[in-house]
Write a protein that binds this DNA or RNA. Structure first.
Length: 278
DNA sequence: TCCCAGGTAGATC
DNA sequence: GATCTACATGGG
């Protein structure tokens, strides 16, 4: 058992789980969750003044501390973002506790290939089905079975046809290609950069940026999707409706510098709130 | 029935 | 290069 005092960190696990950056988790109640990372899972409960992790302190330090990005100083990061654009003060105050997770790179690669042209609940469903079929069974929490996301080895001989049977649609050959390139080491995920990732079929700027940001902790990565696109054009007069995604990406990277990725997460949340009211 | 969803590759001009 | 379009599937 390990207790994390919230006063030492800005951390809001529910906000993180609902932010669209992570798809594998369980929400047991309003203040009780299951986090999953590779072969590990942990039950976390919100208690007075903090979070209680049902694991040994050693596991917390080696797995969940880095997973939650608790080594990053969000006070300083937030100040830097507000300094770049003062309009973010309100959004950041509202989204206090939202953090970028450091998830498994292979899982991020597969997940964001799946994500294209799909709504978040659909992505979650497909990624979970993939884990149940090919991932390792880890245990049970309140009668919910918990599976690891499959390793690249576990998916090594899965054919396009099998992915299609699982309703991955036109992404099926992309998934097969991704597994193949990772397993033959043509794409070395641990030291991947954007161009390397884009060699994989079905991986463009957006998916590659998500892998860099959510899987490899590259805080400068700035994924631009339809939401980001709309919100950035709304926020910045320099950007017009016919701006290219790459220009929007470069604009954001330039504006927010080494914390562009975190700014991106705030902008994404902001966009999800306001766009439907426009 | 029609339209769109955290996109991308390939064809066409 | 910039602009279409097909690509599977499910939900509103």
């Amino acid at each position: 058992m390990y207790v994390l005092k919230i006063e030492d960190y800005d951390l809001d696990i529910l906000k993180i789980l609902q932010s669209g950056q992570v798809f594998r988790y369980e929400i047991l109640s309003e203040d009780s969750f299951v986090l999953i990372y590779q072969d590990h899972y942990v039950v976390v409960s919100k208690i007075d003044g903090g979070y209680q992790f049902e694991c040994e302190p050693e596991e917390f330090q080696s797995i969940w501390y880095p997973y939650l990005g608790l080594d990053l100083d969000y006070q300083a990061i937030n100040q830097s973002i507000i300094h770049a654009d003062a309009r973010f003060e309100g959004v950041i105050k509202e989204q206090m506790g939202l953090r970028i997770l450091r998830q498994d790179p292979f899982e991020m690669l597969m997940t964001f290939i799946i994500s294209q042209s799909k709504a978040i609940p659909q992505i979650r469903k497909l990624v979970n089905e993939l884990s149940v079929k090919y991932g390792r069974y880890l245990g049970k929490v309140e009668s919910i079975p918990i599976y690891a996301f499959p390793t690249s080895q576990a998916l090594n001989h899965v054919k396009e046809e099998e992915f299609r049977d699982m309703k991955f649609g036109y992404r099926a050959p992309y998934l097969e290609d991704a597994v193949r390139l990772v397993n033959c080491d043509l794409v070395q995920l641990s030291k991947a950069q954007l161009p390397m990732l884009k060699q994989i079929k079905g991986v463009g700027d957006k998916v590659a940026s998500c892998v860099m940001l959510f899987g490899l902790g590259d805080l400068e990565a700035f994924p631009v999707d339809v939401w980001m696109r709309k919100t950035m054009i709304y926020l910045y007069d320099d950007l017009g409706v016919k701006s290219k995604d790459i220009d929007i990406q470069n604009y954001g990277k330039k504006m927010f510098g080494k914390y562009a990725g975190i700014a991106q997460q705030y902008i994404f949340e902001y966009g999800r709130q306001i766009i439907k009211n426009l």
